[in-house]
Design a binder for these strands. Structure first.
Lengths: 345, 345
DNA sequence: CCGATTGATGTTAGCGCTAACAGAACGGAG
DNA sequence: CTCCGTTCTGTTAGCGCTAACATCAATCGG
């Protein structure tokens, strides 16, 4: 014996396939066919079955279906802090695409990302028999965690670094940073300072690389890049340190929140943006256009990232579980009012 | 016959309970007991079973367990646009609490919230046999959608208005708004303008009510409250309209993003904050402390909301599915530099 | 007019697990 | 040494669904 039968609001037993079959005068198998491949059932029979389905308000039991078919229609997402703009946007777009394709999304949002936590998150989801898993893994250390995972369940990594034994979809942070820096150089700035993100974030190191590459390509001096923690506070603190230095005329900040903090520190120090200092951010959060002044920044297309990740995962489900392969989404420079021509001293 | 058997990375069949039983020299039932109520099995037997579990890297099949027990260990969350600060924070905290209690969370994030979409979201989740559902339903119209739902699955509403036939956990927007307005009045402002959120949001109307109540309690004039759409842009547009009016010395804005837009419009018009105009927001987004100037705002405790919603839902799962009951989380006024004593003209 | 073909539906078995009960093993009291 | 309650472990059945094959009637060409 098993599960006590759940009841409907009016106290009756929830209808199962056999009930529908009885009411329609057919076998359970025919009901199953009507639900899964209607074209194999005579229209007339089909109609009788559908009528019974409606009359009994029947819904197939997904657990039974999963058990019988081995497919659940659920996708798992392991993500870092879904409160941050990037992860939240990625998650949102994944869910949208998944739903369009009749998949449900289960999430595990980690507040710290490391080998252990990633593995646990993936395990949790696998234990729920998801059909596939996406790991939104912006940390370098996450890559290690991914390497240790068994390749049992189709998996794609979103925003992960190289060296990951799974397909990866990522924004081209490097190209975005290069665009930002070239923009600044084209405005006449001698060099460009960089406030980086936390060292172990792939996003952060990609942006550092792009910034450095663009400076070197132009034969400019490459100052050391200090790192913040993505928060406005850390941008502010950085700003307090550099505000007094008249040599600083252009700063590329690794995200918009830190840029906001920097803008504040600059204003407090009486340095005009973009008059004295030009600032470029990264993300293009919805508020960036209303920063003081409106922020020139690099926009990431999270919707596209989600879409591609989903497509890739769908390929893996059913297809072979090959590793490798990397798809890159290009970010876009959005020029606003925080950048301007270098003012000669 | 059914489901083709999935394989491990090395091509072997995934272990099932019977395999573990065979290896440990016991029956499948004993394995089941070791996993679910270890105290009922002799320590020595238990050890043999656990060894086999590890040796075979066995994981119970959740679908089979769900089918046999009727419980899935999955909670569903239907939420509006999880990209917004509030919903994202709520979702995050729900997932954290749920995970601590060994529940997985499945999500449906709606980009529009109405009777239909809510019902569909809930249906989707019920079809996945979730044990309980949370609806993060900040729209008035969502309430109607909730009324039409069958009471089959335990459900709690988060941030919903009154009149919902389910338990509700919500932030006390009204009290938060009153606090904001009283703060402004205590600084000597004659009256307080209000830029509201979209009319059909419960959060928005709660804040309007609180604002109005506080003004009326103090015997002040109650100006009509225009409504924005939560975006910085709408705050900016509102700001352009009122910036020229010297009568306006205090504004309570329904969220931080709109406040940011307003601050920008005010600055462009040459009006000093808080010198000429005091501004209070709502939300306390992480960036609020770095707005120009740092924003006085009302902080919502989303972690607490998530925790209570989860507790409430857990009560309903297993317990009777009573309706009614409402738990309220108090918001807190955070005073920063965007508010100041009214300057006499 | 008959065997072969096609299409619609039914039968059987089993996916992997656990509830409920049955049975074995053990220890202590009489 | 027997009897009886405790533990502990095994057996049986079934959760609700679907894959695979079986069946049956209708259809068709020769």
């Amino acid at each position: 014996m098993a599960a006590e039968s759940p009841e409907t609001a009016d106290g009756r037993r929830l209808a199962v396939m056999e009930d529908v079959a009885a009411m329609a005068g057919v076998s359970a198998m025919t009901v199953s066919r009507v639900l899964n491949s209607p074209e194999k059932v005579r229209p007339q029979t089909r109609a009788r079955v559908m009528a019974a389905v409606r009359a009994l308000d029947y819904r197939p039991n997904s657990a039974a279906r999963v058990l019988a078919t081995g497919r659940s229609g659920v996708l798992g997402v392991v993500s870092f802090d879904t409160t941050l703009y990037g992860p939240a946007s990625t998650l949102f777009s994944i869910e949208q695409v998944a739903r369009e394709h009749d998949y449900t999304v289960s999430i595990v949002s980690l507040s710290s990302l490391n080998r252990r936590s990633i593995g646990e998150g993936v395990e949790r989801l696998r234990a729920q028999s998801v059909d596939g898993i996406m790991v939104v893994a912006p940390h370098e250390s996450a890559a290690d965690g991914l390497k240790e995972l068994p390749a049992t369940t189709p998996l794609v990594a979103v925003g992960a670094g190289a060296d990951v034994p799974f397909p990866v979809v990522a924004v081209d942070h490097r190209a975005g940073a290069e665009r930002a820096v070239r923009h600044l150089l084209s405005l006449g700035h001698e060099t460009v300072m960089h406030l980086a993100g936390p060292a172990d974030w792939v996003d952060a190191s990609g942006r550092v690389d792009g910034w450095r590459a663009a400076l070197e390509a132009a034969g400019r001096e490459v100052p050391p890049p200090p790192a913040g923690d993505w928060s406005a506070r850390s941008g502010y603190e950085y700003g307090r340190r550099i505000a007094a230095d008249p040599e600083v005329t252009a700063v590329f900040v690794a995200n918009d929140a830190m840029a906001l903090g920097l803008l504040r520190a600059l204003r407090e120090a009486g340095r005009d943006v973009p008059g004295d200092v030009s600032v470029v951010g990264f993300d293009d959060v919805p508020e960036a256009a209303y920063f003081p002044p409106p922020l020139t920044t690099v926009r990431q297309n999270f919707a596209e990232v989600g879409r591609r990740a989903f497509d890739l995962l769908l390929d893996r489900i059913g297809g072979p579980l090959e590793s490798g392969s990397r798809r890159v989404v290009e970010p876009e420079l959005v020029v606003r009012e925080s950048t301007g021509v270098r003012r000669r001293t």
